[in-house]
Write a protein that binds this DNA or RNA. Structure first.
Lengths: 253, 253
DNA sequence: GCTTGACTCTGACGTTACGTCAGGGTTGAG
DNA sequence: CTCAACCCTGACGTAACGTCAGAGTCAAGC
């Protein structure tokens, strides 16, 4: 009973390394008694403590915090666990995105040995898409966010790609038509395309449209890399031209 | 065109910190040109490289490896990605276990402020159960493993707890009955309980039983902490007694 | 008593991807 | 010339140990 263990034995008993025990000792997490020569001596009751440490560590809780939990005594453990769960769930979200990005890239470049740059571009695309979603969140109301979550499911990277291309094309076409009459047939055709594409994302939902408008007006505060990515769409004349075309359409009613 | 950027600008353009750019520079991941005074100068084409770095980093690939990927040129990126996906999936498995353990603990200790030691015990239980599953895998054939995966779904921590308790109780009862006649009514009753409990885990499947037997016979090679946890079941006399009782049962047929 | 092998101790450096000073040049405006 | 705003490098810190390295300890065999 009340047997004594040397580090090696105790470490094996608990399934950890000797060095880890040294570490916990120095951090004050588990301080064994010592022989006269300075050898560490562990009792069986130390095992319980060690198991708790290992368990909390498994949950991703840093050692310093574990020490605090022990130190502050009983209260607060369940509080720490609630917090830790949120942390872990956030980590899982990121992991899922990363795995998803790789999957998309593999899907998009079948066994064929596409040039690696294509794979990378695909990944960047997927990540940026997720990133945009995340960043632009703050412009939408809670309700609008929920609606976007819904629509997101339809937003495969392929769609995203096609959609980007269509906007780019349309913008270029409008740019080329800047000299025309905003009420003319050509301008009206472009305006129709514009409207249709816009509805592809907003679904015509007024809350989403409102968010988009808010986002657009906040342009000066966008992070630099967003401004950079939006640069192709930065031609003020194009926006004004389309405004006029819409106005002309309305006036024609 | 071909605009030049100072670190700060370039960092904001890409959404990273200046210090990160210093870091990538020193690691040889992205080496900008310099002014005479030693200031870093980035070109727009550096942005592409940087975006690739950020993307691969997002996938959890260490910087050194990213450098190697660039260095070894085109081939091998998709290979790296396949590997990385496996790494990430393994991480997700661990994350899920951790989250699961916390959930179980929260479920088992409802809002009531149970002593924290109870919460910790619960977590340790859940983790050890997963750990056991993992460790004991090697004793089972592929088929048996698949079958166990199936049965695992029924194995809530509550069941696990009850099961452990019943085995402990049964073992204690047998120990108390060691003096009796193995063919007697009392011994036969115990043998029946034994058999029933055993089937609770094996489901009577011969492959699982075989794995269990293999595991039991390999006892000397179990890790120390498993031996420690199995210590309450280490009374050889009990096993022999039960063997005799089974034999007597068969002989009575 | 001495050697030997198996253990144990502590201290120091390495790992990862930067963050955070600290001390010291550079540049452009007034 | 000065001042603010940038830029540079180097050094230390972070988390949880792993990996030596140099040195002491213990029990056994000769």
């Amino acid at each position: 009973m009340s047997q004594l263990y040397h580090v090696r034995e105790f470490a094996e008993l608990a399934g950890v390394t000797v060095r880890a025990l040294h570490h916990y000792d120095r951090l004050g997490l588990l301080k064994p008694s010592r022989t006269e020569a300075g050898y560490r001596l562990y009792y069986l009751r130390d095992l319980e403590r060690l198991e708790q440490i290992v368990a909390l560590k498994f949950l991703g809780i840093p050692l310093k915090q574990i020490r605090m939990m022990f130190h502050r005594g009983a209260n607060g453990i369940s509080e720490s666990l609630r917090m830790q769960r949120r942390v872990l769930e956030e980590k899982r979200r990121l992991l899922d995105s990363a795995i998803g990005a790789i999957e998309e890239a593999e899907k998009a470049t079948p066994s064929g040995n596409r040039p690696d740059s294509a794979i990378l571009r695909k990944i960047i695309e997927v990540i940026e898409m997720q990133d945009n979603m995340d960043w632009s969140k703050k412009y939408y109301s809670e309700e609008a966010q929920a609606k976007i979550e819904e629509r997101k499911k339809l937003w495969s990277p392929e769609n995203q790609e096609r959609w980007t291309k269509e906007w780019t094309d349309l913008f270029r076409d409008v740019e080329a038509a800047l000299g025309e009459d905003p009420a003319g047939a050509k301008a009206q055709g472009l305006a129709a395309r514009w409207k249709k594409l816009g509805e592809g994302f907003t679904g015509g939902d007024p809350q989403i449209i409102a968010g988009l408008r808010k986002m657009y007006q906040d342009r000066p505060n966008w992070p630099a890399h967003m401004q950079h990515r939006m640069q192709p769409f930065n031609n003020k004349n194009v926006w004004e031209f389309i405004q006029k075309a819409f106005a002309a359409d309305k006036a024609a009613d």
